[in-house]
Design a binder for these strands. Structure first.
Lengths: 217, 217
DNA sequence: CATTCCGAAATGTGATCACAAACCGAGCGC
DNA sequence: GCGCTCGGTTTGTGATCACATTTCGGAATG
C-alpha cells in the first residue's frame, strides 16, 4: 500500500505496531472524546490493514487502560467517573514528584532550556486554543524531565495513567477554557535551577493536581 | 480456593480470556522461571484453543510486562536486570504503603482475622518449602488488605508490578531458602489493630523492600 | 576439535472466512 | 402517541491458511 521511509528511530514497524502507535497517540493526546465507539473493521481500514493487527492493537491498548471493552466486546474510549479521575490524579501526584526528584540530579542546563522552549510552545497552544497541541506540549514538558530519572518502569506506569486520562483531558480542557499558561511550570523550572528537591516535588505535585482536582465531569 | 477479584471480572470466559488468566497466574505465582520460552502454538494446544486466542492473551500479557517479546517476536518470561528489580521494588515501596494507608480506615476485624489466617498459610508454605504456595499466600495477604483501599486503578498498577516480578520472585525464593515467616507481616497486623497509620506505612514498606532489596540475581 | 555453513523445522504475522451474538431501526399492536 | 417485537445489519470471536523469517542441529571444512 503506502511505502514509507522510516524517518523515525523505529526501524521496522509491524502492522499491528503501526496501528498501536497511531491509536495510542490519538487517545493520549485527547483526539477522541470519552465514549467514542471504535470497530475493528473501521480501525483496520483506516490504517490499511486487516482485522487481525487491529485486534492485537486494541487488545494491547485495552490492557493499558487506553480503551474499554464492553461486556459484549464493543470498543470505546473510557468514560471516567469522578472517583476514577480523582484516583488517577492521586496516582500522578504519587509518581510524578518521585520521578522529578530522581531526575533532579541529572537535570543539566540544556534540559531546562529545552523544557522552557516546550513551555513556550505550550503557552502558544493555549493562545491559539488548540487542545491537542496543549495536551501534547504539556505531556512533553513532563516527560522530557522524567526521562532523566532513568526509571523506565515507573515512567511506563505513568504513561498508562496518562493514557487513561487522555480522552477526559480533552473534555476538561474545553470545559476549562484556559487563557493563561499553567503557573506551576515556572515553579518547576525555578526549582530545577535552584536544585531544590522539596520545592520541585511540591511544584510538580500541585501542577499535577491543580488541573484535575476541581474540574470534573 | 479463594475468589480472586481482579480489576475485570467477566462472568463469561471467552477463549482468549481463559488463556490470559491461566498464563497470568502461572507468571505471577512464579511457576515459570525467568527466560522461559513460550510459543503461540504451544500455548494454544496446552489450553485447547487455536493460535488466535493465544496471540491475544500474549499481547495482553506483554502489555502488562508479564511476558517479553524479542525483536523477532519470540515469547519469553522476563529476565530482570538488577536495576530493574530495584526499580520495581521502589515502585512497590511507593504504592503499597499508600494502598495500605487508604485501607486502614476500612480494615475491620474480620479482615484482620482473614489476613492472619492467610499469614498462617504463608508460614505453612515456608515450612513445606513450597515456593508457589509461598508467593501466592504472600500476595493474597497484601491484596486482601489493598482491596479495602477502594482504589482499583492503583491496585491494577500494582498487580502489573507483581506480574513483572513473578518469575524473578521464584528465582529469589529458591536462592533465599527461607525457614521463617516474614517478620513484618506481624508488624502490619499490629499496626492495623492499633489503627496506627505511620506504623502501618513503615511496616508495609519494609516488608516490601526487605525481600527484594539485597538479594538480587 | 572447533568453526562455519546450509537446509529442514519451527515460529510469528497477517489475511480471510464462518458464525453467533448484539445492535438498531422500522413497523406493528395497543 | 407509546412501547414492543422482529428482521436485517453490524460486530467481535475463533479457526485456518499461506508465507517470510528465524532458529538450530548436523554435516562439511579447516
Amino acid at each position: 500500500m503506502l511505502a514509507r521511509p522510516a524517518l523515525s528511530d523505529a526501524p521496522v514497524q509491524s502492522a499491528h505496531d503501526r496501528v498501536y502507535r497511531g491509536l495510542r497517540q490519538q487517545v493520549m493526546l485527547g483526539e477522541l472524546a470519552p465514549g467514542t465507539a471504535l470497530t475493528l473493521r473501521g480501525i483496520g481500514t483506516s490504517f490499511g490493514v486487516s482485522m487481525t493487527p487491529a485486534r492485537e492493537a486494541v487488545r494491547r491498548l485495552t490492557a493499558e487502560g487506553a480503551l474499554t471493552l464492553s461486556a459484549s466486546g464493543r470498543i470505546t474510549t473510557p468514560e471516567l467517573s469522578n472517583e476514577r479521575i480523582e484516583e488517577l490524579a492521586s496516582i500522578r501526584a504519587l509518581l510524578e514528584p518521585e520521578l522529578a526528584s530522581r531526575a533532579l540530579r541529572r537535570a543539566h542546563l540544556a534540559l531546562i532550556d529545552r523544557m522552557e522552549s516546550i513551555n513556550e510552545a505550550n503557552a502558544r497552544a493555549i493562545h491559539t486554543q488548540d487542545p491537542v497541541a496543549y495536551i501534547r506540549t504539556n505531556l512533553e514538558f513532563h516527560r522530557s524531565l522524567y526521562l532523566r530519572a532513568q526509571s523506565p518502569a515507573m515512567l511506563g506506569l505513568l504513561e498508562t495513567v496518562w493514557l487513561q486520562l487522555g480522552p477526559t483531558m480533552r473534555a476538561l480542557y474545553t470545559r476549562l477554557r484556559r487563557t493563561t499558561a499553567p503557573p506551576h511550570h515556572r515553579l518547576i523550572l525555578e526549582a530545577l535551577r535552584a536544585g531544590d528537591d522539596a520545592a520541585l516535588r511540591l511544584a510538580v505535585r500541585t501542577d499535577v493536581t491543580q488541573g484535575l482536582r476541581h474540574l470534573q465531569v
